[in-house]
Computed example of a mutant assay.
Amino acid sequence: MKQYSEPSDKQFTNDIIKGSPKQVEAWLNFDEEIHNVESAIPSKYKELISIAVALTTQCPYCIEVHTNKAVEMGISQQELTETITITAALRSGAAMGYGLLSMKFFKNIDK
């Protein structure tokens, strides 16, 4: 195997659907309810939030889908770049937060 994730992996979607049809349907309905049903958060913001989460979870498929949907909704390049940099700042902050946990373990080891 040369590469773990690539666009052609989408060919396996039907295998997952056939293997767990009820669960996939439930997941798709949940996703539809979150992203496409009108709520207090405008759809454009939902997509920017989704991009940020996809960047932190490092899901290339989610990054593609939500970036494309956000572009269709008219996001600007500046909105996308600010979303990217906010995500980067938060992700690095999480590393520092887990660094505190690592330091706690270090300090509490019996020496």
Rank of each mutant, 00 (worst) to 15 (best):
E79S: 00
Y45N: 09
I51N: 00
S8Y: 03
Q77H: 11
Q78D: 15
I84C: 11
N14W: 03
E33L: 08
A26R: 03
H35K: 09
E79P: 00
H66K: 00
V53L: 13
T67E: 02
E47I: 03
V24I: 15
A95W: 02
T57M: 06
A94L: 09
Q77I: 12
Y61L: 08
M73G: 11
T56P: 02
D9I: 09
T57V: 15
Q77K: 14
V71F: 04
L100E: 10
S5L: 12
I17L: 11
S43Q: 15
E64F: 08
H35I: 14
G99D: 07
E38P: 00
T67G: 02
S43M: 12
I75H: 03
F105D: 14
F106R: 05
K69G: 05
V53K: 01
Q58V: 06
P7C: 05
E82T: 10
N36F: 15
L48M: 09
W27C: 11
T67A: 09
E47K: 02
K104P: 03
E33P: 00
A95R: 02
N68P: 00
A88F: 02
E33G: 07
L101S: 11
E6S: 13
F30K: 09
S102T: 14
I34V: 15
K10Y: 10
I109S: 10
Q77C: 07
E32W: 08
P60C: 05
M103G: 05
N108S: 14
G99W: 02
A26T: 13
Y45E: 14
I49D: 01
T81Q: 09
T85P: 00
I49T: 08
E72L: 07
T83S: 07
Y61G: 06
I49W: 00
E72M: 08
W27S: 12
G74Q: 00
R91S: 14
